[in-house]
Design a protein around this nucleic acid. Structure first.
Lengths: 334, 334
DNA sequence: GCAGGATATGACAGCGCTGTCAATTGGCGT
DNA sequence: ACGCCAATTGACAGCGCTGTCATATCCTGC
């Protein structure tokens, strides 16, 4: 038979409730008592029964990571980070892929919540900014943390300074002498689309380069959108000498299309991406991009959520650092 | 207050135990009784409390997916498939990344099991074939299903006929007239290494082509291993006209290295991969490869596990179909 | 129509833990 | 040394469900 809390209590010579207090790290337990209990727990290799805890405490010790993101690299990183945080505090994590644009999206999350009763959610873009969902979560009083949400006020989670990062990567192109720099936009539902565009415009403007709408092409973060955008850009009479794609997948698409048009990267055209996903090292030429600390973002977001859940403070919106990764897809303008 | 089983029982005019029977799909409930209960459940939107169920039934209704696989695409697919299966039977899934070669690997799984008490595990390569782990699982009597394990006898899960698939993709190259076909090996810990090599040798042998050890190069499924292997192959005096890389990432590396050597794919050299991961469509040229139904493999493996867990039959080892995807990285020998 | 076995339903306790609240102990000022 | 308040500990019930076993009901063959 497994070791129960009662067994630990008997061994330590205290009541079960006191063991429970130690287990849950509650205040008002005298030092020596705590030591005794801790020692007994360790000696007996005691593991609390999660279901019993949940049932009695009316909490699940469960965090759900909810996503609708086609990039498995990004997702896996976030997920691993959230897991890191959960492990640190003996929470469990479940994952839930969803389609944010499906009619029953909110209802599916509702079902998830009624069914599994997570204590909180970790949301990833673009689900971070789904108005009906957020309304429903507030209504049901379900705490959540967001990774890179559009609106940061009043919510908790983690983010990087995206406009600044975009300025930096465009600045890298400017520093190489490029003046006709195109931009392939991100998916409209993602905050990143706006931020990266803003950074692009600010960098150009700071360099005194007028904004040319013809050089900004729609996209949706997919490889094929990068291909389509590049076909359009490379057909322009006055071709850009550099392309800032709003993420790595699209940048890979741009490079692919460059080959199709007989253009060599970076000799004829420089290309930069954003995110530093593995693909940026798995294409030729390797991609200059912005490294985003996705795993850490997942971890920090989850930690803030857990802090709020455990009543240790409020939980904050934390800014994390990014880093420009210069690789082989960029060169001085020819 | 939430609806409890007792409330449903009262509404349906039966005892709580009968509602429990209906809920758990047990035998020995008369048709009309079942209908009444089902109707009451639906009317009241009843959701069983997972923790209460777990505590009373001494089962967690939880499946853990355990992996040590650098390919997030593959992983996300498997994970989604396992989730599909869990949803079908109202189980939960947790995920656990691990390092199979770390010293405390088995102990970590031990901890996972003591801590979260999953009813069963889904293992993915290469964890499917870790002798100490399997021994420990048998010892602790923890059921598991495996995706593409090396040893299929006596275990449950899902697989494809890998040697046959490898024969087919090599056959495709032979059909294009290639005779000097190289092979880049997979990671030694994965069954796929052996199977794909076997298929390669069988295909050559069937075509009456002698086996040339110089054309078989070590690898580990990573992009950079593909690059390294290709550098070696392309430096050979008698260069191969085609390369069968044991997975897509390595094939992408081979294509990358081809560019480095001034070789055009597929004009100078044809390249094929295996797995049909997204990268096979995100490189230029797009990759001829074998499509493996990863999501379905995850789902089927989990379904077999659940069948065993729920006492509905034994759980089998199920073979799933693959499909050759011919794309642009292969052409008739020049 | 009835015995007898099979099938269906219910009563009850208890899974392992925590919330509530009462009882006890300790610390401190005088 | 004593009273008093706060800090600490414990007793007890119950979270929502299912296992066990007893009881009730159904059906069959004669």
């Amino acid at each position: 038979m497994r070791v129960r809390l009662e067994d630990v209590a008997r061994a330590a010579g205290v009541s079960p409730k006191t063991v429970s207090r130690v287990l849950n790290d509650e205040a008002n337990v005298r030092g020596p008592t705590r030591e005794k209990v801790l020692a007994a727990m360790a000696a007996m290799d005691y593991r609390p029964h999660p279901s019993a805890r949940s049932l009695a405490a009316n909490r699940s010790f469960l965090v759900a990571t909810v996503y609708d993101n086609p990039s498995s690299n990004y997702l896996t990183e976030i997920q691993t980070g959230v897991l890191d945080a959960c492990d640190e505090h003996h929470y469990s994590m479940m994952v839930r892929p969803l389609h944010a644009d499906s009619a029953d999206f909110v209802q599916r999350i509702d079902t998830l919540i009624s069914h599994h009763r997570p204590d909180g959610l970790v949301l990833t873009p673009p689900i971070t900014d789904h108005p009906q969902l957020l309304a429903r979560l507030h209504e049901r009083n379900v705490p959540y943390a967001s990774v890179s949400p559009m609106r940061r006020d009043g919510s908790i989670g983690a983010f990087i300074d995206e406009p600044k990062a975009a300025r930096e990567v465009v600045g890298h192109l400017l520093g190489l002498g490029h003046r006709r720099i195109a931009h392939v936009l991100g998916h409209p539902a993602h905050g990143a689309r706006g931020w990266r565009l803003t950074g692009y415009r600010e960098a150009l403007s700071a360099a005194g380069i007028p904004f040319d709408p013809a050089l900004v092409v729609d996209g949706d973060f997919s490889f094929s959108a990068g291909v389509a955008a590049a076909r359009q850009l490379f057909s322009l009479a006055d071709r850009p000498t550099a392309v800032f794609a709003a993420n790595d997948d699209m940048a890979a698409g741009v490079i692919w299309a460059a080959g199709e048009h007989g253009l060599s990267v970076p000799r004829d055209v420089s290309v930069v991406g954003f995110d530093d996903t593995p693909i940026s090292r798995q294409i030729w030429p390797t991609l200059t991009t912005i490294r985003q600390p996705s795993r850490e973002m997942g971890r920090i977001a989850a930690l803030q959520l857990l802090a709020a859940l455990r009543g240790k403070g409020e939980g904050r919106m934390v800014q994390l650092p990014y880093a420009l990764q210069v690789r082989e897809s960029t060169a001085p303008v020819g």
